[in-house]
Amino acid sequence: MAVLNNKKSKVSDEIPSASMADIAFLLLIFFLVTTVFPKDSGLAIVLPEESETVEVNQKNILHIIIQPTGVVDLKRGESSQVQHVRPNDIESIWRQGVAENPNLIAAVKTHPDASYKFMIDVLDALQLGGATRISLQLFEG
């Protein structure tokens, strides 16, 4: 008890290795359970069958025209009145339109030079709005 430093500890100074295998298995099982392989994800759409053309009343069509600059023009049915909107607004416009007319069809007309992402933005907004009747076309003229 005189010199404190001389006291020898009875505890072993080695790391216990008997449980190493258990630790390894625990880690193995943990990673096996938590690993998620990336699944494919995206926006699903059904293409029309070939030679399947359906006459649709102009009243039931919501024309969505995507310009090369990303500006979205909206044209309702027969009226030639054009309304400029942002892609994010289309969701609420669609919900409103469907509430008024349950037979509404979204005709997405994209300019040939417009970026793909603008079309995806519009398609995204439509699908968020619960739209299923979507027609993808090329904007001509």
């Binding site: 926006l43 293409l47 029309p48 300019h111 040939p112 970026s115 079309m119 995806i120 993808l136 090329l138």
Partner: peptide, 26 residues
């Protein structure tokens, strides 16, 4: 950033092949 005309051509080719279900991966 790809121009939409390429996507449209692709879609027309797929319709001609009889494909119905497609997914735009995002």
């Amino acid at each position: 950033e790809v121009a939409y005309q390429h996507i449209d051509q692709l879609q027309k080719q797929l319709v001609a092949a009889g494909v119905v279900r497609i997914v735009f991966a995002t």
